[in-house]
Amino acid sequence: MTLSYPRPHRPNHARRLATAVSTALLAAGVLVGCSGDDGPQRTVDAFLAGWRSGDLQSVGMIDPLGSKLPSADVAREIKDLSGELAATPPTLTRRGEPKITKDIATTTVQVEWTLPGQTRWAYDREVRLAHGGDDQWQVIWEPTVVHERLAKGDRLALRRDTGARAAVLDNAGQPLVTPRPVVRVGVQPNGVADIKKLVKDLDAAFKAIRPALVPGVDLTDLPNRVAEAEPGAFVEVVSLREEAYRQIKPRIYDLPGTKFISDKIDLAPTREFARALLGTVDPAQADDIAAHPDRYVVGDLVGHGGLQGRYDERLRGGPGLTVVVER
């Protein structure tokens, strides 16, 4: 699941709907929270401060059914839901005073994350509170408080997206290289039982396929990459043309920890087509990253040899960043 940012402007019909809902609530007797210390805004502000600091001990928490929740458990779940964004907690801003209907208060909070490259991603969330018998307000906790698409066990993650690579054209202006189906072969760390055995089995499988279909695959740094990755991450090993994947699938599909993603990559008609002239486009290898740490990261596509290598900087697209929900 992919989350795009920044958030687009809401269309006019959404604003009309929001206005209609607000009018209906006012007709039903919605009150703006008072400004005294006993109002729900005090609890909201304490919750927002605790969200950022990771300490919610001063905030009463309940689930949507009204059962009490340990504040430490909620703080831990917020961190888990934040996933790869947890190291930089969001800026949280309460928008106006809470609105109270009977024993339920509702307030809108802007959640603004600072992503790598100082990119900002902001959206509004609704925080609800219930008025308890002890005359205290308690936050009604659910994962959607962090983001509307999150559920228990989910986590936010960052995905680096490389822009579309420019085409190499023939003398008639037609692309020699076009998007063709591939299968990205990777490893999920928490599914690997024995990384040394997995590397050995993968190496044997790749070497058994004709070199014309499968390039030499360097697995030297795979154990380190798996060890450093998040447990549920996809650690890419190689992208294979469908023909090559069909041949190698029986050897690797059932290996513990292997994962497979269908995709499209700009490729020549065959691996050997005008190879010396065109060069190849492959996932960044360890020596690419070592030579240009400011340019490439694991997973980037890099031109090697021929025109692809010589004009790599002109042909490769600029990288982007996407926030995704991992389940």
Rank of each mutant, 00 (worst) to 15 (best):
215 P>D: 06
312 D>M: 07
41 Q>I: 02
130 A>D: 07
35 S>A: 12
240 L>D: 14
196 K>S: 09
322 T>A: 13
111 V>P: 03
288 D>P: 02
316 R>Y: 11
53 S>G: 06
77 E>H: 03
38 D>C: 10
137 W>G: 02
228 E>L: 04
103 D>F: 10
299 G>C: 03
116 P>R: 03
256 P>Y: 02
43 T>M: 09
174 Q>R: 13
245 Y>E: 07
5 Y>G: 00
191 G>A: 11
124 D>S: 05
134 D>Y: 00
22 S>K: 13
61 M>G: 06
321 L>P: 04
280 T>F: 06
192 V>T: 11
91 T>K: 12
327 R>H: 15
293 P>V: 02
133 G>I: 07
13 H>W: 14
165 R>I: 08
199 V>H: 12
309 G>C: 11
120 R>C: 01
73 D>E: 14
60 G>H: 12
198 L>M: 10
8 P>D: 09
72 A>V: 07
118 Q>H: 13
83 G>D: 12
149 R>T: 07
144 T>S: 14
246 R>M: 12
311 Y>G: 02
54 G>S: 08
91 T>I: 10
55 D>I: 00
282 D>C: 06
57 Q>D: 13
63 D>C: 08
156 L>Y: 02
131 H>G: 01
99 K>L: 15
147 H>P: 01
180 R>W: 09
158 L>K: 02
212 A>R: 13
326 E>T: 15
288 D>C: 09
84 E>F: 08
134 D>C: 04
301 L>M: 15
184 R>M: 11
122 A>C: 01
182 V>M: 05
286 A>V: 12
165 R>A: 07
146 V>S: 01
204 A>C: 05
145 V>G: 01
133 G>M: 04
241 R>K: 10
89 P>M: 09
23 T>I: 03
170 D>C: 08
313 E>P: 04
228 E>R: 15
13 H>Y: 11
30 V>F: 12
322 T>W: 03
193 A>M: 03
118 Q>N: 14
37 D>R: 15
79 K>I: 08
319 P>K: 03
235 V>S: 08
243 E>C: 01
153 G>K: 04
133 G>H: 03
269 P>T: 13
228 E>D: 12
259 K>R: 15
257 G>R: 12
59 V>P: 03
322 T>C: 02
286 A>E: 12
28 A>I: 06
2 T>Q: 15
